[in-house]
């Protein structure tokens, strides 16, 4: 049973369907979920201790940032918990999958997916001081610097990350002015292309200044759901980054 969207993602990829007692309601419905198809039709919960007690699962997956009151209550009630982390590198994402697969009794599945992740940046040179700089820009100017999975992937693909050049943390914000003053060689837009209703955060992606800039730069669309949980969706993110790198090489970037 899982109480967190990222835990849902890992569980769906690593467990056999009959092992899954319940997922969060987000897995099948949230625009942030990359696993709509896999989650369809499975039982859901809304992340409360009451639902856990009712189901009496053998294992409860929580996230490092899950509500601490909930986690403490479940511990007191004697449930076996497993805490999912937001991985900070490809290696830690692969290791987490192996570890969880072992707990679930499917070590082969874990090894197979972790293996795919580990050879992800195959065929590209790691970034050097002359590699082209790429900026990740999401709703509200959200970006990701050193110490994040996407940063690791960017480096391994032979690109330098704008956010880490600006000394921004794993979760940071780029003011649009800063981006325009130090133009990167390429953009990675991490917003969703199709969203119901628009928010102010996503309107920053529609700003004329950004659109003008994006019009002149090679751009990849990699929504957050491909990389924020550390599931195998990261393979798709890697694929898109590699295309961007190829395009830049074709344009004569070092």
């Amino acid at each position: 049973m899982s109480l967190n969207l990222c835990a849902d993602v890992l569980l769906l990829h690593l467990a056999r369907p009959e092992q899954i007692a319940s997922l969060t309601f987000l897995a099948a419905t949230s625009p942030l979920s990359p696993v709509h198809d896999l989650a369809a039709g499975l039982p859901i919960n809304h992340g409360s201790a009451e639902e856990v007690i009712a189901l009496q699962p053998d294992l409860v997956l929580v996230h490092r940032y899950s509500n601490t009151h909930l986690v403490n209550a479940l511990e007191d009630l004697g449930f076996r918990l497993w805490e999912v982390e937001s991985p900070d590198s490809l290696e830690s994402a692969a290791a987490q999958m192996e570890a969880l697969a072992l707990v679930l009794g499917n070590p082969e599945r874990g090894k197979q997916l972790a293996g795919q992740l580990r050879q992800l940046p195959a065929g590209s040179e790691p970034a050097s001081n002359t590699s082209p700089v790429v900026a990740v820009y999401g709703p509200n100017g959200m970006t990701t610097g050193a110490g994040s999975l996407l940063h690791d992937l960017i480096q391994r693909t032979g690109l330098r990350n704008f956010a880490s050049q600006q000394q921004l943390p794993a979760t940071g914000r780029i003011p649009l002015e800063t981006l325009l003053m130090h133009p990167p060689r390429a953009l990675v837009l991490s917003g969703e292309k199709q969203q119901q209703g628009s928010t102010l955060a996503e309107q920053t992606l529609q700003h004329p200044a950004l659109r003008q800039m994006a019009g002149t730069l090679p751009t990849a669309h990699i929504p957050g759901r491909y990389w924020s949980c550390g599931g195998p969706e990261i393979l798709e993110a890697g694929q898109r980054l590699r295309q961007l790198r190829t395009q830049l090489t074709a344009e004569g970037a070092p």
């Binding site: 969203q195 928010t199 700003h207």
Partner: peptide, 23 residues
């Protein structure tokens, strides 16, 4: 609101901001 970012924007509506507005 169906969009996960929406709930974070209450601060903007209560306190106001001119940041990154456009023509």
């Amino acid at each position: 609101a169906p969009n996960p970012y929406a709930a974070l924007e209450i601060v903007f509506w209560l306190l106001g901001s001119l940041a990154e507005r456009s023509m």
